[in-house]
Computed example of a mutant assay.
Amino acid sequence: MAARLIKSCALLLLLSSAAYAEKLTVIGDAYALGGETLLYREYHYYSEDGMDHRVVYIAPDNSKIAEKSLNYRPGKSTPEVNHQAWLYPEKIQIAWDSDQLALAYTDNDAEQKTATLDANWPLVIDAGFDNYVRENWPSLLTGASLEFYFPAPTRMSLVNLMIKQKLCAAERQNDVCFSVNSSNWFIRLLLDPIELSYDKDTQQLSRFRGLGNMMDKEGNGLKVDIRYRYQGLCVDEALCAPLLSEATPQ
């Protein structure tokens, strides 16, 4: 009896620790670029040591439309990624195989594409870009243009991108802004840059404007204006996350 009680208590503690192993840290409200139509919300959860990062994407009807997990142990700007979307069926995996990148991509239940690529440096992967900005903060504030490589799983290749400081188009007064675009001048003529706004004091991303990583039901990339809220102790009801349903992804 005592042994069973001890075992039950141990199991309860294990389940409790698992339930609180990650904390909701950031909420991103994604609006249609140039408008006020809410497209979805991002809920960012981090483990206590910051090495694991989970993003849950929730539609306005409270259904889960995508989920992404990142493992930062290979590097703060070069995490492993596992992304699954259901609004438009898509699965992306980026993993390290020794000093090479293993990419896997499935689009709308089509046959999976895979590739193993040599890593070109400096390399930035997915949300590791946020850490890359902070790591290079002093250089960026001097006006330097920094080039880096970024995996494009849909193309099974690395693309060469560039980031530099720019004037802020958004309203926040305490922000510093950066533009991200192709390092190829011809491609820059064809693509709209992404604008990132960071708080000058905290170096936290406050706004993302441009083509995001989510697609609509037809598979078209969504151009979004994402405004980020940092939870902290979450004492203000306006900042706290609404309760999420356990809706089955459609």
Score class of each variant (00 low, 15 high):
residue 238 A to P: 08
residue 164 K to Q: 10
residue 170 A to P: 11
residue 70 L to V: 05
residue 13 L to S: 12
residue 83 H to A: 01
residue 195 E to S: 08
residue 38 L to I: 13
residue 133 V to E: 06
residue 232 G to M: 08
residue 162 M to E: 08
residue 46 Y to W: 05
residue 8 S to W: 15
residue 95 A to N: 07
residue 59 A to G: 13
residue 108 N to K: 06
residue 136 N to W: 04
residue 189 L to H: 06
residue 189 L to G: 04
residue 163 I to N: 02
residue 176 V to C: 00
residue 15 L to G: 00
residue 74 P to E: 03
residue 123 L to W: 03
residue 45 Y to K: 14
residue 207 R to L: 14
residue 63 S to K: 00
residue 172 R to H: 13
residue 103 L to K: 07
residue 106 T to F: 00
residue 152 A to G: 09
residue 102 A to T: 01
residue 103 L to G: 06
residue 129 F to T: 04
residue 102 A to N: 08
residue 250 Q to A: 13
residue 198 Y to F: 08
residue 75 G to C: 01
residue 7 K to I: 15
residue 101 L to W: 14
residue 248 T to K: 10
residue 234 C to A: 12
residue 75 G to F: 00
residue 220 N to F: 15
residue 104 A to L: 02
residue 136 N to C: 00
residue 229 R to V: 15
residue 64 K to S: 14
residue 60 P to M: 10
residue 168 C to W: 08
residue 12 L to F: 07
residue 149 Y to F: 02
residue 184 N to Q: 00
residue 40 Y to A: 05
residue 67 E to D: 12
residue 247 A to S: 10
residue 34 G to P: 04
residue 162 M to S: 01
residue 129 F to L: 04
residue 246 E to C: 15
residue 206 S to M: 10
residue 207 R to G: 10
residue 197 S to D: 05
residue 234 C to K: 15
residue 244 L to N: 01
residue 111 E to V: 11
residue 200 K to V: 03
residue 206 S to E: 10
residue 39 L to I: 12
residue 159 V to D: 00
residue 142 T to D: 02
residue 180 V to E: 06
residue 245 S to K: 13
residue 86 W to G: 07
residue 8 S to K: 14
residue 53 H to M: 01
residue 116 T to P: 04
residue 32 A to K: 15
residue 191 L to G: 02
residue 175 D to C: 02
residue 48 E to W: 11
residue 231 Q to I: 09
residue 173 Q to W: 15
residue 41 R to N: 08
residue 21 A to H: 01
residue 81 V to W: 00
residue 149 Y to L: 07
residue 110 A to I: 06
residue 141 L to D: 04
residue 6 I to Q: 11
residue 102 A to E: 04
residue 137 W to N: 09
residue 114 T to H: 07
residue 172 R to F: 12
residue 192 D to K: 14
residue 216 D to T: 03
residue 112 Q to F: 00
residue 159 V to E: 01
residue 24 L to T: 11
residue 220 N to H: 11
residue 215 M to D: 07
residue 249 P to Q: 03
residue 102 A to W: 00
residue 243 L to P: 15
residue 69 S to M: 06
residue 141 L to A: 07
residue 199 D to A: 08
residue 166 K to N: 07
residue 248 T to G: 04
residue 106 T to G: 03
residue 94 I to V: 00
residue 46 Y to F: 05
residue 54 R to H: 13
residue 23 K to H: 13
residue 149 Y to C: 06
residue 208 F to D: 02
residue 150 F to L: 04
residue 57 Y to K: 08
residue 93 Q to N: 09
residue 231 Q to L: 11
residue 82 N to D: 14
residue 143 G to M: 08
residue 180 V to T: 06
residue 124 V to M: 04
residue 19 A to W: 11
residue 241 A to N: 02
residue 211 L to I: 03
residue 107 D to A: 10
residue 226 I to Q: 15
residue 185 W to S: 09
residue 144 A to D: 14
residue 119 A to S: 12
residue 16 S to V: 03
residue 130 D to M: 10
residue 76 K to H: 06
residue 167 L to S: 15
residue 176 V to D: 04
residue 93 Q to S: 03
residue 148 F to C: 01
residue 246 E to P: 14
residue 38 L to N: 11
